[in-house]
Amino acid sequence: MASARTWIRFTRPFTLLPPGLGVVSGAITAWGSVWNPDPAHAITWAVVGTILLGTACAGLLNAGSNVINQIYDLEIDRINKPERPLITGAIGIPPAWRFAVVLYMAALLPTWLVVTWPETTLVAKFMAPLARHECIFIYALGTLFTFVYSAPALGRTKASTIGANLTIAIPRGLLLKVAGWSMVASIFHIEPWFIGGIFFLFLLGAASTKDFSDMPGDRLGGCRTLPIVFGVRTAARMVAPFFVLPWFLMPLGAYLPDPLAPEHAILTGNPVLLTGFGLGLALWGSYVVYLILRDPDALAESENHPSWTHMYLMMMVAQLGFAASYLL
């Protein structure tokens, strides 16, 4: 029987921080926006508890996604990741499936209790009308995307040149921010989708950085990733703009009027901070582009190319930047 440490390693815990941070950041932006339904903008135990619950569920959902991805990628991981528990035999396929089901249920069901103000008690949240339970639908959609990405019966977009990036960028970029927002305010405004759209565009290209070192196993598994289809050098040039251009939407959103509410900008946080973070991230992205294009072949030769590390760090700094821009 596998040890607790092995089961934890199976979930790839180092990947759980970005989604948790994304949810918290999304909730903070909603709290600091003009769309906060509580006119007092109070920080209550109900608000904090809801955000903590949603954050925990985001981590569990990501863990479940990691587990099923390893199940479906078994043959690919024999080449690319031979040290993983399913490959070494430390964990078997049937218990891995049971573990995934537990993780998905633990991630999805509690989000029924994520309901915004004025419902503040657990009973009120539980009994709220269906339309008030926006968060659980976002999480359910995110769950579906994890299976569409990995499962052949649902399309396995991981094997698709563009589909793979879309089914990473939509749940981990767009929906993640909207899910965090839904813990404090309604998602039926342009602002949360605009913010999510920035992260969607970033991940649409940046997510491909992991594909370069995985080419041998991906090729064997029939995955038509960008570097396999277009070659390393062309694929590197294709993903480079996504490290820079999305961040210019931050200063634009800070000053362009909301089409549905023109009395204020699309982004209702601190415009100076939003502009500063946006330009700073664009400069940072330009440096990452330099690292990528200086020696594109190194992307395929190194399992942990600096661009992969920078992608994660940029995501986390952007999350913190949005949170700060709506708090200060």
Rank of each mutant, 00 (worst) to 15 (best):
A4Y: 12
R5A: 14
I8N: 05
I8G: 01
F14V: 14
T15P: 07
T15G: 03
L16S: 09
L16E: 09
L16V: 11
L16F: 05
G22N: 11
G22H: 10
V24K: 00
W31T: 02
G32C: 00
V34E: 13
V34R: 13
P39R: 00
H41G: 11
A42P: 02
W45N: 14
V48P: 05
G49W: 14
T50V: 14
T50H: 06
L52E: 00
L52K: 04
L53W: 07
G54V: 02
T55R: 09
T55K: 02
L60S: 09
V67N: 01
N69Y: 12
Q70Y: 03
D73C: 06
I76F: 05
D77E: 00
R78S: 03
N80M: 08
N80V: 08
P82V: 05
T88L: 00
G92W: 03
I93E: 13
P94C: 12
P94S: 11
P94V: 14
P95Q: 09
W97T: 09
A100D: 04
T111R: 03
L113I: 01
V115N: 04
V115R: 04
W117S: 00
P118C: 08
E119P: 00
T121Q: 01
L122H: 06
V123G: 11
A124L: 10
F126V: 10
M127D: 13
P129M: 09
L130W: 13
R132K: 12
E134Y: 04
I136V: 15
I138T: 06
A140M: 14
F147R: 04
F147G: 04
V148M: 11
A151P: 04
R156M: 07
T157H: 04
N165H: 12
T167S: 11
A169K: 04
G173D: 08
L175M: 13
L176P: 09
K177S: 15
K177F: 14
G180K: 08
S182C: 10
S182F: 10
V184Q: 07
A185K: 04
S186V: 00
P192H: 06
A207S: 15
S213Q: 12
S213N: 07
D218T: 04
R219Q: 11
T225D: 01
P227R: 03
I228M: 10
I228E: 00
V232M: 07
A236M: 08
R237A: 13
M238R: 12
A240T: 00
F243Q: 06
V244K: 07
F248M: 08
M250C: 08
P251L: 07
L256M: 09
P257N: 05
D258M: 07
P259R: 00
P259N: 00
L260H: 11
L260F: 15
A261C: 10
P262E: 05
E263R: 09
E263I: 05
I266M: 10
T268Y: 02
G269Y: 12
N270T: 10
L273E: 04
L273Y: 06
T275P: 05
G276E: 09
L279D: 03
G280F: 14
L281I: 10
L283E: 07
L283V: 15
W284D: 10
Y290S: 12
I292N: 06
A300E: 08
E301Y: 01
S302D: 15
E303R: 14
E303N: 13
P306A: 07
P306H: 02
P306S: 03
S307K: 01
S307F: 05
H310M: 13
H310E: 14
M311C: 11
Y312E: 14
M314N: 12
A318I: 11
L320F: 15
F322D: 01
Y326H: 10
L328W: 12
